[in-house]
Design a protein around this nucleic acid. Structure first.
Lengths: 340, 340
DNA sequence: ATGAAAGCGCTAACAT
DNA sequence: ATGTTAGCGCTTTCAT
C-alpha cells in the first residue's frame, strides 16, 4: 500500500505538499498539483483514513443510533437509514449502524471519546429527549431525525412536517366535499411516551380541522391488521358521520380497509382514505390503491446526515431545522364525498 | 481525554505495560494489572480506536454492502443488517453500512485499502458472484450472507437452508394428508439472475417432492399483491388439484389469500398455505394467520458477521459455512387436506 | 515481568 | 509556493 511518502517522492515534492494538494488548505501551483495527482494515480494511492483521523483529530464516521425495539421495524425506518448513509457517502463520510434496544447513549458517547465517530444521528426523538443531555455533556455533535419539543434544544434536525401534511390532506378532502374527517392514529401509548411523530400529527390534525372549518375525531389504534379491522367499528361509533379518514398507521389502515370492504362500506364511495407516509410501492399494491401524502423519510435521513456533517466539518449551515412534507399522490382510495 | 500515557503515569508503569494489560498479549503480574485497571477506571480512560487501528494495522470496522435496489427492500433485509450489527458489537467490532445500487465493489475495496475497514459482508449473493474476484484480488476478507454455487469459493458464509426448510414444510403438509403441493415462487427473472435464494428454494422444493413421493408444480409470480391475486388462477390452471401451497413471496401470498377468500376458496379447508421466511409479526397479523417456517435472517446476519470477524482476528473458525433452517410455526392457514 | 523507543500514515504549525 | 518536523495515541520489537 503506497503512502503519502511514496507519492511525495514520485512527484518530487515534500510530504506536506501532498497533504495540502489533497486538502486544498493552502495554495499550490497548478504545476505541482498536477504532478502530485499524477503520482497518486500512478501509484493508486489511497489516503489512510485512520491516520487522517488520528492526526487530524476528526473522524469521517458518524453513528446512527437505530432503535431495534419491539415497536416493530417499519420500512420507513430503513429509508431514514439509507438516506443518511448515502448522504454521508456523498460527502466523503461513513455511516456506522448502532442498533440499540434501550435509550442508553453512554456507549455511543464512548465511541466518540474513543475517536471512532465524529457525531451521532438520533431516531425516535421524543418531545423531551433525555439523550440530548448525556450526549451534550460528552460533547458529542448530534443530529436529529425528528425533533424535540423545546426550541432551546436547537439541535440540528430534519423532521416531518405533520402540520403541513395534515393540512394538505385535509384541504384535499375538503375540496372533495368532505366535512367530517376522522384520523386513525397509532396507539394512545405512543402519545403518552411523547414520541414526536404521533404528538405532532395529532396537533396537526386538530389545527387542520380548525383551519378548514371542519369537524372530526381521533381514533387510536394498535399497529396491527386486526386492530385496524376493529377500529372501523369504533370509528362509526365514536365519530359518526365521517366520510373521510386520514391515516398514519399502515397496518391498521389495511385492516380497516379489509373490514370496510367486507362490511359493504365502499371505498372511496362511502369512505375516502388518505394515508400519510405510507411507502409508495405499498400504497399502490393494495386494492384499492391508497391515496397518500408520500413519505419524505429518505430526504429526512439525507438532510439530517448532511446537516450533522456540515456542522462537524465546521462549514456554514443552512437553517438548522428542516421540515419535509411529502407530496400528495391521488390514488383510488379517495374521491368525492357521498351526497347526504 | 486521557491517553495511555496518563494511565501509565498514574499507575506508575510504562506505557507498554498498559498496552499489554489491555491486550493480554504478554504476562503481567496480578498486582500491576490491577493498578493499571484501577488507573484506567479513575481516569475514565478510553483507548483511541483510530490510533489502535493505525498502529496495529487492523480496524475494528466491517462494512456491510447493502443492496438498495429496485427489488424493493424487504424487512428480512433489515433483519440481516441488525443481526450483523449486533454480533459485531458484541465482539467489539463495528458495522459500517454501505448502500449500493449496483454490484460494483471497487469503492469498498478502496475503503479497505484506506484502512477504514477490515472486511466486508455481502448480501444478495448470486450462484456465481463476480464480486468475490474483485474483492479477493484486493485482499479484502469477505463474509457472505448467502453463498455462491461453487464450493471452491469456499468463502465464509451463512445462509438459509432451503433444502431443509422445503423438506420441513413438505413433510408437515404430507403429514396432513396433502399429496399435491404447489410452490409460489418469486418472478422467473430472479431465477435467471441466478440469485441464490430462489434457485436453491426451487431445487429444494423439487427434492422435497421427490423425497416425500409427492407431486406438485411451481408458479412464478411478481412480488406484488396484485400479482398474487392473479397467481391463484394460474395455480388452478397450471397445477390443478393442489390442496396446499408453499410460498416464499410475501406480497404475492397476501394477494393470493385475498383472492382466494373472495372467490370462496376456503383457507385452510380447501387450500393450506405455508410460508417460508415471512416475519412472525406479519404472519400472525393476517387473516387467517399464516403458518410459517420462520425466517432465520437475524441469525444469519449474526453468524456471517461473527465468522468474518473471527477470521479477520485470526481466531480459530467453526465450520466455515453455516446453514439455518427456521422453525415451523403452525397457524391458521394450514390444516388437513380436504377429503377427495 | 517490565521499560524504552521506533514506527503506523497523516496534519499542521513553523520555517524559508 | 513549498519544505521540515513535531506530534496524534497506540503497538511491538528489542532490551533488561
Amino acid at each position: 500500500m503506497p503512502t503519502r511518502k511514496d507519492v511525495a517522492q514520485r512527484a518530487g515534492v515534500s510530504e506536506a505538499t501532498v497533504s495540502y494538494a489533497l486538502s486544498g488548505k493552502r495554495t499550490i501551483s497548478q504545476a505541482t498539483r498536477e504532478r502530485v495527482f499524477e503520482a497518486m494515480r500512478e501509484l493508486d494511492y489511497r489516503p489512510n483514513l485512520m491516520a487522517q483521523a488520528l492526526a487530524g483529530g476528526s473522524s469521517s464516521i458518524i453513528a446512527l443510533l437505530f432503535p431495534s425495539q419491539e415497536r416493530g421495524i417499519s420500512n420507513a425506518d430503513l429509508e431514514y437509514v439509507l438516506g443518511a448513509a448515502s448522504a454521508a457517502r456523498e460527502l466523503g463520510y461513513h455511516l456506522l449502524l448502532w442498533p440499540t434496544e434501550d435509550r442508553d447513549v453512554s456507549d455511543v458517547a464512548s465511541l466518540f471519546q474513543a475517536g471512532l465517530i465524529g457525531g451521532v444521528l438520533l431516531m425516535e426523538v421524543r418531545m423531551k429527549d433525555e439523550r440530548l443531555r448525556t450526549l451534550g455533556k460528552a460533547g458529542v455533535p448530534v443530529g436529529l431525525i425528528g425533533r424535540t419539543g423545546a426550541k432551546s434544544d436547537a439541535a440540528i434536525a430534519a423532521d416531518r412536517d405533520f402540520q403541513a401534511a395534515m393540512l394538505k390532506a385535509t384541504q384535499y378532502l375538503v375540496g372533495l366535499g368532505h366535512t367530517r374527517i376522522g384520523y386513525l392514529s397509532g396507539p394512545q401509548r405512543n402519545i403518552d411516551l411523547k414520541l414526536g411523530a404521533p404528538v405532532r400529527a395529532e396537533n396537526g390534525f386538530r389545527s387542520a380541522l380548525e383551519a378548514t372549518g371542519t369537524t372530526g375525531a381521533v381514533v387510536y389504534c394498535e399497529s396491527t391488521i386486526e386492530a385496524g379491522r376493529e377500529a372501523l367499528g369504533r370509528l362509526s361509533a365514536d365519530a359518526p358521520g365521517c366520510t373521510a379518514l386520514i391515516c398514519l398507521n399502515v397496518e391498521a389502515t389495511i385492516g380497516l380497509m379489509q373490514e370496510a370492504i367486507e362490511q359493504g362500506v365502499h371505498i372511496p364511495e362511502d369512505l375516502s382514505i388518505v394515508s400519510i407516509g405510507t411507502p409508495e410501492d405499498f400504497a399502490s399494491a393494495t386494492t384499492p390503491a391508497i391515496t397518500t401524502i408520500s413519505s419524505p423519510a429518505e430526504q429526512i435521513g439525507r438532510t439530517a446526515a448532511r446537516l450533522l456533517i456540515r456542522s462537524i466539518a465546521g462549514l456554514e449551515l443552512p437553517p438548522e431545522q428542516q421540515l419535509w412534507v411529502g407530496e400528495l399522490a391521488v390514488r383510488a382510495s379517495s374521491g368525492p364525498a357521498p351526497l347526504p
